[in-house]
Design a protein around this nucleic acid. Structure first.
Lengths: 205, 205
DNA sequence: GTCTATAGTCCGATAGAC
DNA sequence: GTCTATCGGACTATAGAC
């Protein structure tokens, strides 16, 4: 249990699948490719996860569990909503940086019409946006709140946050830059500024 | 040539492929499914497009050609940059509304590592963001411009604009709303406000 | 828990007739 | 331009041995 090489077969399958799904998409990745990278046999996927689709659901679940956790830790409290929102965006960006593959998979695979996945994903997205809305909206002044359509602002924010990680290879190629820690030093705050000034019309903290 | 039923086989293949790629993704859609919907035989895809991948490239091309056209028509001129930018966002949203399937395909398929597609997509994205930047940035006041990192603001804007169309079925399910013309009446301006106040720190026009 | 072997289906591409 | 037939391979899932 000391190194990743000792990780359980189940864990190794999931790690390999995350890498491959992010790189080539869920449906373009074969089970053979996943188990080869994980060093196990095809039968292990169905033994440990039940099916290829259940493996994808387990991966998406990991992504959303992380989001819920951050939301519940950071959005609560009595600090001004702008401050809590800014901390939240920093935490989200930090989490995305650590797991860009999960972001890619969540964004590219969620919209697809796979039977049984539709309800699954709607439930998770609802819960996610609901957490943010319930903690932040009530603390905003009336005149700001009445001009916000949550069903417009929510998806816009998520798009703003995720698109960079979704398209990172393309953006990197297009701008010829390295996404090192210098790039990310003020990244979350630049996005937070856009959102704060754009939606709340104020950006301090 | 009067109705869509009379459209050429090539056109019918492309229309069917757009619907299916948007619904199920490129790699989850088989040629047999496409040609069945188009009322032709499998051989016609390779005859008219060369390969399944070339069909996808033709679809992505249609999407980007539309974007270039809008950019060149609307971004040019001597009006204040805020005004041109707002008109541009309105036009983009209008175009996306007419072809939500194309947006879905472009966003979900662009990041995938398909050999030969990588250079293709990087070239198009570069050209797209370059058009916007070259028409708008020079007209902005120095103190605004120096605080903008194009490689941050560009993708954030694209994410904000596309995410709604990418996730429309999920959002619809989550918020239990209809995306009718009432929903879209002020939609583009709400996004434009976020962008204007967020990035330019002013939102008139 | 892990394997091998295989069942049964579907894939993209093309040859060749019309 | 359009078709049918078919090739060779890859797919997911599972049965059964250890």
């Amino acid at each position: 249990m000391s190194s990743e090489k000792d990780a359980s077969a189940k864990q190794r399958i999931m790690e390999a699948a995350i890498k491959l799904f992010a790189k080539k998409s869920y449906s373009a990745t074969g089970l053979r490719e996943i188990v080869k990278a994980a060093g196990v046999s095809v039968a292990m996927v169905n033994y440990h996860f039940g099916s290829k689709q259940a493996l994808l659901e387990a991966i998406l679940d990991r992504f959303f569990q992380g989001l819920y956790k951050v939301a519940e830790e950071i959005l609560t409290g009595d600090d001004p909503p702008e401050l809590r929102m800014r901390r939240y965006l920093r935490a989200i960006v930090g989490g995305f940086r650590k797991n860009p593959d999960l972001v890619r998979i969540a964004i590219t695979e969620l919209p697809n019409d796979m039977p049984g996945i539709v309800e699954f994903k709607a439930e998770r997205v609802t819960r996610m946006l609901g957490l943010v809305a319930s903690h932040i909206l009530p603390a905003l002044p009336e005149e700001v709140r009445e001009n916000i359509r949550l069903e417009v602002v929510g998806p816009a924010l998520v798009g703003m946050l995720t698109f960079h990680f979704l398209m990172r290879p393309v953006i990197q190629n297009a701008f010829q830059i390295n996404f090192d820690s210098t790039f990310y030093e003020n990244y979350a705050d630049e996005l937070a500024d856009i959102f704060m000034y754009g939606v709340f019309r104020k950006g301090q903290a």
